[in-house]
Amino acid sequence: MLDTEFFRRWLAAATALIDREAGRLTELDSAIGDADHGSNLQRGFTAVAAALDKEPPQSPGAVLTLAGRQLISSVGGASGPLYGTLLRRTGKALGDAAEVTPAELAEALRAGVAAVAQLGGARAGDKTMLDALEPAVAALGETAGTFAAARDAAAAGALATVPLQARKGRASYLGERSIGHQDPGATSSALLFEALAEAAG
C-alpha cells in the first residue's frame, strides 16, 4: 500500500531530479521551444516542496492536489497548467483514502493523463509529454505497480519523440525542423516516473 509519506517521497525525488536536470531540459527546450522549460519546472517544484513542508497534507490525494495547485500558480508557460492538471486530477481521483494500491494509483494517473490530453488537445505521437505519460501509465496498469516498468516505458517514450514532427505547442511552429530533437515535456515527464520508481525503492 502507498501512504501519504510515499507520495511526499515521490515529489521530493521529482524536485531533486528536476533540479539536477534543469539545464538539460532547458537545452532541449532551446532547440524547439522558449528555452525556459527547465527553469520553469525547477521554480514550480521548489514551490511544491515549500508548500508541502508548510502545510503537510494528510492523504495521498491531498499531496497531489496541493502540488498541482502550486504548479498552476507558480509556473509560467504551458507546463504549469499541464503538470498542475496532471497532479490535481490524479489527486482528485484518489480521493481521501489514507492509503492507495499501485493499481489505484495507475487508474488515477490514467484520469490525470486524460485531463492533460483534453487540456492540450494533443494525443500520443504529437511530440508532447503524452508520448512519455501514456506508455508509462499503461505499463504501470499492466504490471500491477511495477514502478520500474513505468519508468522504463516513460524513458523510451521520451526518446521516441526524437524522429517525430511536433504537431502541438510551440515546437509545432517549426514544422519539419522539430524533427531530430527530443521533446522537453516528454523528457520531464519521464523524470516524474523515474522519481516514482526511486520513491518505491
Score class of each variant (00 low, 15 high):
6 F>L: 06
7 F>M: 13
9 R>T: 12
12 A>G: 11
15 T>C: 13
17 L>R: 14
17 L>A: 13
18 I>Y: 02
22 A>T: 10
25 L>F: 02
28 L>S: 07
28 L>V: 04
29 D>Q: 02
31 A>S: 04
33 G>N: 04
46 T>P: 02
47 A>W: 02
50 A>G: 03
50 A>R: 12
56 P>M: 07
63 V>A: 15
65 T>F: 08
69 R>E: 01
74 S>W: 04
77 G>P: 13
78 A>I: 04
80 G>Q: 08
81 P>M: 08
82 L>Q: 11
83 Y>P: 09
83 Y>H: 13
85 T>F: 08
88 R>M: 15
88 R>Q: 15
93 A>V: 04
97 A>H: 09
103 A>L: 06
103 A>W: 00
107 E>N: 09
109 L>W: 10
115 A>R: 01
118 Q>H: 07
120 G>M: 11
121 G>P: 10
126 D>V: 12
127 K>I: 10
132 A>V: 08
138 A>Q: 14
148 A>S: 15
150 A>K: 12
152 D>T: 14
152 D>N: 14
160 A>F: 06
161 T>E: 01
164 L>D: 03
169 G>Q: 05
171 A>M: 01
172 S>K: 06
174 L>H: 04
175 G>S: 08
175 G>W: 09
175 G>P: 07
181 H>E: 03
183 D>A: 03
185 G>N: 04
187 T>N: 00
195 A>G: 12
199 A>I: 00
